[in-house]
Design a protein around this nucleic acid. Sequence first.
DNA 1: CATGAATGAGTATTCATTCAT
DNA 2: AATGAATGAATACTCATTCAT
Lengths: 188, 188, 188, 188
Amino acid sequence: MRTKDFDKQQRIKEAMVRLILQEGINGASVSKIAREAGVSPATIYIYYSSKEEMLAEVFQEYSHQSYHYLMRQIQPEMDGGQLIEAIVRGYFAYTLEHEEVFSFVEQCSRCPTLSSNVSEEECCCEVFDLLHEYQDRGEVRRWSDPNLAAVLFSPVRFIAMDHSRGPEMLEAQLEELIQMLRELLLVH
Amino acid sequence: MRTKDFDKQQRIKEAMVRLILQEGINGASVSKIAREAGVSPATIYIYYSSKEEMLAEVFQEYSHQSYHYLMRQIQPEMDGGQLIEAIVRGYFAYTLEHEEVFSFVEQCSRCPTLSSNVSEEECCCEVFDLLHEYQDRGEVRRWSDPNLAAVLFSPVRFIAMDHSRGPEMLEAQLEELIQMLRELLLVH
Amino acid sequence: MRTKDFDKQQRIKEAMVRLILQEGINGASVSKIAREAGVSPATIYIYYSSKEEMLAEVFQEYSHQSYHYLMRQIQPEMDGGQLIEAIVRGYFAYTLEHEEVFSFVEQCSRCPTLSSNVSEEECCCEVFDLLHEYQDRGEVRRWSDPNLAAVLFSPVRFIAMDHSRGPEMLEAQLEELIQMLRELLLVH
Amino acid sequence: MRTKDFDKQQRIKEAMVRLILQEGINGASVSKIAREAGVSPATIYIYYSSKEEMLAEVFQEYSHQSYHYLMRQIQPEMDGGQLIEAIVRGYFAYTLEHEEVFSFVEQCSRCPTLSSNVSEEECCCEVFDLLHEYQDRGEVRRWSDPNLAAVLFSPVRFIAMDHSRGPEMLEAQLEELIQMLRELLLVH
DNA sequence: CATGAATGAGTATTCATTCAT
DNA sequence: AATGAATGAATACTCATTCAT
């Protein structure tokens, strides 16, 4: 018996994500994904029972990824100001480095048939744990978790989605956003 | 027969937006839209030269709608604090009242084949004009336009997209967000 | 607007029936039927909402055909013996002249998902009416309708299905069967 | 391990026949049969070289089964009238007890790609031998073998296929059919 | 302007079969 | 002998679009 080739599954996931970045969630048909991954359409159905299930499963999996990435940017000795900078810059760097996954997750989270199963807050609970520590140490203000998430992540995503600005404008905008969030979130 | 034709086109637009809310951008096929609008598929091609063009055109049109709605919530005699409340509450009310259009615009704006043509900033220029007045009067701080947009609109959208919370929780969250934005944006 | 081309629907039905004779109910795929009928696969779905529905509808339609054919072979002035001969020979002639339809109906009536909707007895009610007249006139014995159908039609079908015998053997067999049925069914 | 292998092949055959009763000859795919039998699809190809060959072989095998069953219902001391009753009731009992095999054989025997290889008369030669004895003893009339088969078996099959009648109606119908066949076949 | 019929190219999915272990 | 992974070709069906009226 041949053993399951998990590299093959990885290639399927990557092909799907790549195609969805290029052509939108519409354009990513099963046969295109198969061709892009170098497998037969039938092979996809060994790993996923339907296209819908595949989307949902990969969406679920990748929705955590940005927060894991983020956590790696943060050092324990940082103070509150550095933490906010690390989060904003780390999240933004993620959107650049993993453009396809970012675009994929953004598209899926807007799709009514997919988004219901994945909640943002479950994904970023590690970040919340960290923020709670800073709140307990009196460095970060005690705004509620949902609003912390709302102001920390969605403005960065908003900036990352706008491809019209040049790199130095972006840098200036990020810099200012960090300043705004420091004023808003740090205890003075 | 100007009104009748206009009516038909309006019905097509509404049918499309309704379908996209229900079934996602995939599920809205031309025939389904036609059936939902009560016209023949061929009729749609009288008003739009292709499905792609139809999506783009209606997206363009509706992407302004939330800001027009917003502007109607604002009275000239409001002070800065009232302005911020009106913007946040107005925008959130819009996402509830025009759920389909909101979902449609959100989906389109993440779709790589569509979003390139419509920039958020063009859509909310009226709101910027207003904010500039308040900045000139020394009531609102002089953060850059892109970051003003980022913190004023995307957190509200983020909250509006999360359907897991009950109404009284939502109200508390909005209240807190307004307080946060007042601290951040008003001159003290 | 183009008008529905009922000749096209006829060609679809004939193509289906022809294919099912040649390759069995397995081999008759929608695309093969379309190719055989000279239309696009999509066209079939203008006339039938699914393959299952198409099979069921055409089966229903054709299951009456043999009995209509039969009735045309019968003259009012025939006596009981001539009636039985006309039925047996007429039914057998039908199986030869409409080989594809006969094979199609035989196959469908054995398929558990199709046969439940079509009852043989509804199809041959005209023949029953006729037999009742002969029973009332004292020419045909008063066996029950189901058993009349059982002995009049199924042995003929059984003979018609066996393609191993030559024509003169068949003729002799039919002749004998007629004699058997006369003995069994006529009042002496 | 002779028994184990035999077991596996038996399970495959039974799974196939069961599935064909439930879903028709279309619905019985190799993978479904394998799943139903609890073996791998590849295993089926150890016992049969193709699906077509498997169908043909199992059809061939099972097409005799009803006549073997029948022969067991018959005692040597029966007279002609009892013989006919035993055949009719025995055959009918078979269709009830082995519903799946009966349905399977009926479906296969109508399928043009399968039926050509199996002739009914070869299958029931034991029954013919028996009938010839009764004919030689002057109890059963000397109708030809094909017509004997036609009137003895196909009406029963016809009745067995009609699932619309209740059990007591069926009993009455069988009773009458036995009477008919006694009149027709016995020497008076 | 408006239509329903018509379609070739595409959709997601399953098929019978073979491969590698 | 037996397996589950793998597949190219096929499945039923739908798509965006055009045609003829």
